[in-house]
Simulated scan of single mutants.
Amino acid sequence: MDFKSVVFYLFSAVLVFASLRVITARNPVRAVLYLVLAFVSGGGIWMLLEAEFLAITLVLVYVGAVMVLFLFVVMLLDINLDRLREGFWSYLPLGATVGALMALEMGVVIGGSYFDLFENRVPALVTDSNVKEIGRLIYTDYVYPFEVASVILLVGIVAAIALTGRQRRQTKAMDPARQVLVKASDRVRLVSMPSEKLEDSVPQAGE
């Protein structure tokens, strides 16, 4: 057994263990941390399969953004753990059925190559790296779908900001348009007041 196989089995064992701990851990914070470990192990397996783009995307997007957000949400929310465990056994048959179907589908797809169930289509070998090849395809053959997807994401971001960024009446915010039109003569007024004499303001002795 070579070193690559040893590393593959090591990452696979960590991935399976972390996946089981995600659904069996009682503390939701620990479950999220185990899910982060599962994603990192999956990224390592993708690197062994020479799929650098998928490995980097898995680590940066899911571990670096999504799971950190989930971790903060779980830590900030006051979650009643006893209430969450009440309906666990009632959903167990449905969850076991869905898991069995997923395992069956994966077995058919993976075992199809061994039993010649599908037509073998070997892709052409590329001399460049995986990331460079994907970048070339995105910005040449699939540039229009890529731009359409970026516009859709931009519209979604603007819509989310417009829906959540409501103006509050209690906030004391300045209107830049009105602030630019302000003149010094409208805000500052000079009042001419006569000066008072000192002997008039100081009381005399005997008064």
Rank of each mutant, 00 (worst) to 15 (best):
M1L: 09
D2G: 07
D2W: 02
F3S: 01
K4Y: 04
S5V: 01
F8I: 02
F8D: 00
F8K: 05
L10W: 00
F11M: 04
S12Q: 14
V14D: 07
L15A: 12
A18S: 15
R21L: 05
I23F: 13
A25S: 15
R26D: 12
P28Y: 11
P28F: 13
V29G: 13
R30C: 05
A31W: 07
V32T: 11
L33Y: 11
Y34W: 12
F39T: 14
S41N: 07
S41W: 11
W46M: 15
L49E: 13
E50N: 14
A51T: 13
F53V: 09
L54S: 07
L54Q: 06
T57C: 15
L58W: 01
L60H: 01
Y62I: 10
Y62K: 10
V66P: 09
V68T: 01
V68G: 00
L69P: 03
L69K: 11
L71S: 05
V73Q: 08
V74I: 14
V74G: 06
M75I: 01
D78M: 03
R83C: 04
L84C: 06
E86Q: 11
E86Y: 07
W89T: 03
W89Q: 03
W89C: 00
S90K: 15
Y91T: 07
L92A: 12
P93F: 02
L94Q: 10
A100G: 08
L101V: 13
M102V: 10
L104H: 01
V108M: 04
V108D: 02
V109N: 00
G111Q: 03
S113G: 01
Y114G: 11
Y114C: 07
Y114L: 11
F115G: 08
F118C: 01
F118E: 00
R121Q: 06
V122E: 08
L125A: 13
L125K: 09
T127D: 08
K132I: 07
R136P: 00
L137T: 15
Y139R: 07
Y139N: 14
Y142L: 13
V143N: 00
Y144H: 12
Y144L: 14
P145H: 04
E147T: 11
S150H: 07
L154C: 04
V155C: 15
A159T: 14
A162I: 03
G165E: 03
Q167L: 04
R168D: 07
R169E: 10
T171M: 08
K172C: 10
K172P: 08
A177T: 14
R178I: 08
R178T: 10
V180S: 13
V180L: 15
L190M: 10
L190H: 06
S192V: 15
S192D: 13
P194F: 00
S195F: 03
E196L: 06
E196F: 00
K197Q: 02
E199K: 15
D200W: 13
S201C: 04
V202K: 04
P203K: 09
P203Q: 05
G206Y: 02
G206C: 05
